[in-house]
Design a protein around this nucleic acid. Structure first.
Lengths: 109, 109
DNA sequence: AATATTGTTCGTATATTTGCGAACAATAAA
DNA sequence: TTTATTGTTCGCAAATATACGAACAATATT
């Protein structure tokens, strides 16, 4: 790889934007922190943590799921949600890589 | 701090959501990578990298600036943009902290 | 079978985002 | 002073996002 170029390809940029977008709402950050702090939990547990309608919670969970950050599986009549282990790790690396692109020791502009 | 609790307060969650939202667009990820890869540059340099109208580029830059990720200063008749060093570092830490909240060694749900 | 529990989906209203060209502002150059 | 250069801001149209309650679906319970 050339000096000065970065390792985040176009496809990865799209993935990052998708993930960042999913994280771009206070409620969804709250949900991620909640899920990250435990092994797993049910929809109702998430809903109980938030002062919003269940339909809204469901939509936020869907967005996080569509972005790949979490996963949910039916345990009738409940639905168990948890962090998507592999994608979470991928996201961690992508963001770390992006933030590392900038040389903090550089002089101010 | 209690075991199981996390270190990201409500206020920080809002900041994270704000930053993530700003990063939630492919063009803005592209801009961040571009700026992160050099000391600084002018608006025109950013515009030249992108296949979109200058007014649109200006708006994207404004959002990144409002989120605190970048800064811009007039060097008439040009405008020099660059990564906002301190806020960039803050963002790096916040994201790293969030992603570290999840114990990757946990069993799948 | 009837009822209760748990979430998702639908329909709707409002707000925000995105993108563009035109108009504008500020300085530099002629 | 006129003219060029460089970006921002404005006004608009179209697309998305946000939030809610009602309706629905699937299973468990009685």
């Amino acid at each position: 790889m050339e000096i000065g170029s970065h390792a985040i390809a176009g496809k990865e940029q799209e993935v990052m934007a998708r993930i960042a977008k999913a994280m771009g709402h206070p409620t969804r950050i709250e949900i991620l922190l909640f899920l990250a702090s435990r092994e797993s939990c049910f929809f109702g547990d998430v809903h109980d943590e938030l002062p919003i309608a269940k339909s809204t919670v469901s939509q936020h969970l869907k967005e996080l799921k569509d972005a790949g950050l979490i996963q949910g599986e039916i345990e009738a009549p409940k639905v168990r949600y948890c962090i998507h282990k592999e994608n979470w790790e991928t996201a961690r690396k992508l963001f770390a890589e992006l933030f590392d692109q900038f040389d903090g020791s550089a002089i101010d502009c």
